[in-house]
Computed example of a mutant assay.
Amino acid sequence: MDDDFKQYRLPDDDNGSWILSTISRIGLDEFTEQESKVTAALDKLKPGKFYDLHDLPEEKREMFIRLSCLYIRSHPEVAFSNDYSRIEKLKTV
C-alpha cells in the first residue's frame, strides 16, 4: 500500500480549475454536498486530534484531500502531515 498521498494534494497555483472541472464532472449539487461533509468533519476535529486518511475508502481519498486543501486556506489551524496521510487540528497556545 502506498502511504504517500501527496499526489492528491491541490496545487497552490490551481486557481479554481480543479473546482470547475469537478463540478462539470459530478455536478454542483454533488460537489456542494461533498464539500459540506468535509467541512463538517474538519470543523468537528478537536485540537491535537487527527484523521488518518488510510481509514478513508480509496475512492473517496482524493476528493477528501482536495476539499481539505480548500478548507485549510481559510483555516490555518488545520494541517496535513508531510505525506498527506493525516490531517490534524493543531493545538493553539
Rank of each mutant, 00 (worst) to 15 (best):
I23G: 05
I26L: 09
G48I: 04
I65C: 04
K49G: 02
M63F: 06
L42G: 03
K6L: 12
S81C: 01
L90I: 14
G27I: 01
E33V: 01
E33C: 11
N82C: 09
S68A: 15
E35S: 15
H75V: 08
A41L: 13
D4Q: 09
E88K: 09
I65L: 04
I19P: 03
H75S: 08
K6R: 15
F31G: 12
Q34P: 03
I19T: 13
M63A: 12
S36K: 14
R9Q: 14
S36W: 02
D12N: 10
R86C: 11
V78I: 15
L53Y: 07
L28N: 12
K44C: 13
G16C: 09
F64Q: 00
V78S: 06
Y84T: 00
D43Y: 04
L42W: 07
I19E: 13
L67K: 09
H75F: 13
T32G: 12
L90K: 15
R66G: 03
R73C: 03
P11A: 10
D52Q: 04
T39H: 12
L42I: 01
A79C: 11
C69Y: 00
F80H: 06
L70R: 11
Y84K: 05
L53I: 08
F5I: 00
S85I: 02
V38G: 02
L45D: 05
I26R: 07
L53Q: 06
R61H: 01
C69R: 00
D3P: 04
R61Y: 06
L10Y: 08
E88Y: 15
D2T: 07
I87C: 00
E88C: 10
K37E: 10
F64K: 00
S21G: 08
I87P: 02
L56M: 09
Q34Y: 04
S36Q: 12
S68M: 03
F50L: 10
D12G: 12
S74L: 09
K89Y: 10
G16L: 00
G48Q: 03
I23L: 01
S36D: 11
P57C: 04
E35F: 02
K49D: 03
L67D: 03
A41S: 13
D83V: 03
G27P: 03
D3E: 08
N15D: 11
R86H: 13
P11Y: 06
G48W: 02
Y51A: 05
D55T: 10
I23V: 14
H54I: 02
S68I: 01
D55V: 02
S17C: 08
D29W: 11
T22A: 09
